[in-house]
């Protein structure tokens, strides 16, 4: 499976990453070799095989809807780049 730099650019936008033209060429070359390698996968006969998402096929455990943790907002917001009055600050979204 080959991938061109246009497709990589699209995936980069989805990933919220940016590359300049020179980086894009290099990334395209490297990803092409990785994807070629991954394509070995298609030799496997997986007809009728159930996809495996968890090594023990465990399913999500549920718990009672009860408060178990105390509010530690101030402590957790101390590591945030920018906060004010208990809110996380980001660049203006709505004009």
């Amino acid at each position: 499976m080959s991938i061109d730099s246009k497709e990589i650019e699209k995936v980069a936008v989805l990933s919220r990453l940016k590359f300049d033209q020179k980086q894009l060429n290099e990334v395209t070359e490297r990803l092409t070799s990785v994807l070629d390698f991954i394509d070995q996968l298609h030799q496997a006969d997986t007809q009728g095989i159930q996809p495996m998402a968890h090594p023990m096929d465990a399913v999500q455990r549920l718990r009672a809807d009860k408060v178990t943790e105390t509010n530690q907002r101030d402590k957790y917001q101390k590591v945030a780049p920018s906060t004010e009055n208990g809110l996380y600050l980001v660049p203006k979204v709505i004009e």
Partner: peptide, 22 residues
């Protein structure tokens, strides 16, 4: 990038689901 690509629309079955089967 690889992860986003294999999960993106049109490739999910061919890569991600196939890998989970394998």
């Amino acid at each position: 990038l690889i992860g986003t690509y294999v999960l993106s629309s049109g490739f999910y079955d061919a890569y991600y689901l196939k890998a989970q089967q394998a």
